[in-house]
Design a protein around this nucleic acid. Structure first.
Length: 196
DNA sequence: CTTTGGATCGTCT
DNA sequence: GACGATCCAAAGG
């Protein structure tokens, strides 16, 4: 289990996204393997929260790489991103699906009765935040130092080659951009339909 | 299995 | 005042 240097995150989101596949996100006992992500490219990407410039909500995206950007949406859900690229450029990678590896009891308790199967614990961006207990108080957490108890780590598992690729889910613009990456066949990949 | 509609509120126009 | 980088229960095949 090895932590990443900050330089690992200081690259474009489209480059980093597939590299995060099969890496781990760790919060205490709770561990998940990252199996589905989407890249968002800041000012150049109409689907990004940062497309119209900095605001109070998206400030973390403009900060240094290797931090967590957590936002609230649909009146009831949180989503978590890994901030990447150089400081000042608001690119990020959305975590969309995990395979639960550890702390399953805590995850079940956090998710409640709706998660009937273990694969339902973390197979969606809102679900994985709920399972890991990530909310707005984790916005800005440093994934390199683990200053708030959350970090990204490597257990030596290589990313898939090639990864699965598709259009991004849930976005109403730039539907032709294929920046969703996933581990084919892995438990925890969300079942929502993507653009083929 | 798939499809559909409701929930619910912070954020930006 | 409108709309989400969503989830879930319910209903239909």
């Amino acid at each position: 289990m090895v932590a990443f240097p900050r330089a690992f995150f200081a690259v474009d989101s489209v480059e980093l996204a597939p590299l995060l596949l099969n890496k781990l996100i760790v919060r205490g006992e709770r561990v998940g393997r990252i199996v589905e992500v989407e890249a968002y490219a800041g000012a150049a990407d109409p689907a990004s929260h940062a497309f119209r410039g900095p605001t109070a909500r998206n400030a973390t995206m403009f900060g240094p790489p290797g931090h967590l950007y957590v936002y609230f949406t649909y009146g009831m859900h949180f989503c978590a991103n890994v901030v990447c690229g150089p400081e000042g450029e608001a690119s990020a990678v959305l975590l969309r699906g995990l395979t639960p590896l550890g702390g399953l009891e805590e995850m079940r308790a956090a998710r409640g009765p709706a998660a009937r199967l273990d694969r339902d614990l973390t197979n969606g961006p809102g679900k994985l935040c709920q399972a890991l207990g990530l909310d707005r108080s984790f916005d800005g957490a440093d994934l390199v130092t683990g200053d708030r108890g959350v970090e990204v780590a490597d257990d030596g598992t290589a990313p898939p080659s090639p990864p699965g690729v598709s259009g991004r889910i849930g976005v109403s613009v730039a539907a032709d951009v294929r920046w969703r990456f996933y581990v084919p066949g892995a438990a925890g990949v969300s079942r929502a339909r993507a653009a083929p």
